[in-house]
């Protein structure tokens, strides 16, 4: 087992460019030797699942050139997760957002969650892995302190809209602030524009990430839906600056 940090100063931060974004790590400094293995995992995911690489398994599978049985077994696992998320979101989460096969909406969250599990398997009990704005956290950054995660304001760059706290949890946010409107409501074919951003918290990032995408596509009425989803909570910022959140949302006023 790796010793837990005595003070916050013994933390290691690392920012890794991969998957078209940057993945930030906050782990105990003594866990540095585990990091290369986790980074190799993320780059492998990038090479295997990127829809932008002609020769990736996902691209070849999508074009019908490579049967699933010949793909990396992780693709079948991802497709299984995608099917579950499609069903429990009533089709609002989909692997064919633009009519073309693209499971990227799930792959990033899934690979970050798995990166966390790789750290845990190596004995790292305190970590925060941030994959371009979607996080999986475990343990505490310092003894007795929960993780404090700022939710970026979609309307005021550089500001946080709220702060969530927790120990073993995931935080995923969907919004149009960084890449413009890009999430399509699969039932209407129109770009989702009801909300400026939606944040989902819960145990698993794979699920939270897919829920965030679905909630953003659903729009303002997602609050009623999110309130009924067991184990996950939601916070949303509307374009007019007003916000709403589900009753169990773990903001730091709790």
């Amino acid at each position: 087992m790796i010793a837990q940090p005595v003070t916050a100063a013994e933390r290691l931060r690392h920012a890794e460019p991969v998957m078209g974004t940057v993945v930030s790590f906050d782990i105990p400094a003594v866990a540095a030797s585990v990091l290369p293995r986790v980074l190799r995992w993320l780059h492998w995911v990038d090479a295997t699942f990127s829809p932008y690489r002609e020769d990736s398994d996902v691209s070849r599978f999508g074009r019908g050139q490579l049967p699933l049985a010949d793909c990396a077994p992780e693709l079948a696992e991802v497709l299984g997760e995608c099917a579950v998320m499609r069903d429990i979101t009533g089709g609002y989460f989909t692997t064919t957002p633009g009519g073309v096969f693209d499971p990227s909406g799930l792959v990033k969250g899934w690979s970050i969650e798995r990166a966390g599990r790789l750290l845990a398997a190596a004995g790292v009990t305190s970590y925060c892995v941030n994959g371009g704005g979607d996080l999986q956290c475990a343990g505490e950054p310092a003894p007795g302190q929960p993780w404090r995660i700022g939710i970026a304001s979609p309307l005021q760059p550089g500001r946080v809209a709220t702060v969530v706290t927790g120990r073993d949890f995931a935080v995923a946010t969907s919004g149009s602030a960084e890449r413009g409107a890009h999430i399509v409501n699969p039932h209407t074919g129109r770009l989702a524009a009801d909300l400026a951003s939606v944040t989902i918290t819960g145990p698993r990032l794979t699920t939270a990430d897919a829920y965030a995408t679905a909630a953003f596509a659903i729009g303002d009425v997602a609050m009623g839906w999110a309130e009924r989803v067991p184990g996950y909570e939601a916070f949303a910022v509307r374009p007019d600056g007003r916000t709403w959140q589900t009753s169990g949302f773990p903001d730091d006023s709790r």
Binding site: I149, G150, I151, A152, V163, S174
Partner: peptide, 12 residues
């Protein structure tokens, strides 16, 4: 805000 990390719309 005394935060450890930030969640937001996916950045490139």
């Amino acid at each position: 805000a005394r935060i450890n990390a930030v969640s937001g719309a996916s950045y490139t």
